[in-house]
């Protein structure tokens, strides 16, 4: 494969893994975060504290846990997901979900009480009330997704352990930068670093535009 083809493949896989894990984490975290954010009860507070702790979960530890789950002797070993992009997605979902969930829960719980009361007096049922609150919190939820994607695209430890950095199969931008530096391929590492930065800039500007539109 040519150098350009090689870089293109690594970049595409980085986007695919980070994008898929952010999407899956969003689908899990936003509904749960909304429900928990609407309930100011003791159990929700306890869960919030646990989530805040998980914000600081070291990616290598998450990677190790997923590695043990997916390894041959692990409970999910028969699925043969270790050293595959899907395995990398699972590892990143573990890292990103608590972040999106925690921020969603916080922004939903800070939506004015009057929003809930207004929807209630206008005849909303429980589901319609949740959707209304989520709509009011849309800008904050989008921020949660942006933070989650940022964590996923820049993450290196977990994808290295679970993906194994196999050439042509599980190489992503961050793991390639690490190995390039180890092999004194500084020029290649810097080029990949610039690509990573540009990708982040393009994606964030797109999300920012969406966020601007959701603001009043």
């Amino acid at each position: 494969m040519t150098l350009a083809g090689d870089i293109l493949q690594i970049t595409a896989l980085s986007l695919l893994v980070a994008g898929t894990s952010t999407l899956v984490a969003t689908l899990i975290a936003v509904p749960i975060g909304t429900v928990l954010g609407l309930r100011e009860v003791g159990s929700a507070r306890l869960l919030r504290n646990i989530l805040f702790t998980l914000y600081g979960l070291p990616p290598v530890l998450a990677g190790l846990l997923v590695f043990l789950l997916l390894s041959r002797a692990g409970p999910l070993g028969p699925l043969r997901l270790l050293y595959t992009p899907l395995g990398m997605v699972i590892a990143q979902v573990v890292i990103v979900t608590p972040i999106i969930l925690g921020i969603t829960m916080s922004v939903v719980s800070t939506v004015e009480r009057r929003v809930k009361d207004t929807a209630f007096v206008l005849g909303a049922d429980r589901y319609q009330l949740s959707i209304t609150v989520l709509r009011e919190a849309a800008a904050g939820v989008l921020t949660a997704i942006m933070v989650g994607f940022g964590r996923a695209i820049s993450e290196v430890g977990a994808v290295f352990i679970v993906g194994g950095h196999i050439e042509g199969q599980t190489q992503v931008l961050t793991t390639t930068i690490i190995t390039d530096v180890a092999q004194a391929e500084y020029g290649h590492a810097v080029a990949l670093g610039v690509i990573l930065l540009l990708l982040a800039a393009v994606i964030y500007s797109l999300l920012y535009r969406i966020q601007e539109r959701t603001l009043p």
């Binding site: 009057r114 009361d117 207004t118 007096v121 005849g123 909303a124 709509r135 849309a138 009043p216």
Partner: peptide, 26 residues
């Protein structure tokens, strides 16, 4: 039952969206 408060809260969106809210959920 309908209610109008002293300082009403309008939802994010335009005036028409706000007026149609009760119709949407019905």
């Amino acid at each position: 039952i309908g209610m109008v408060a002293q300082n009403p809260l309008l939802f994010r969106g335009n005036a028409a969206y706000n007026v149609s809210f009760g119709l949407c959920i019905r």
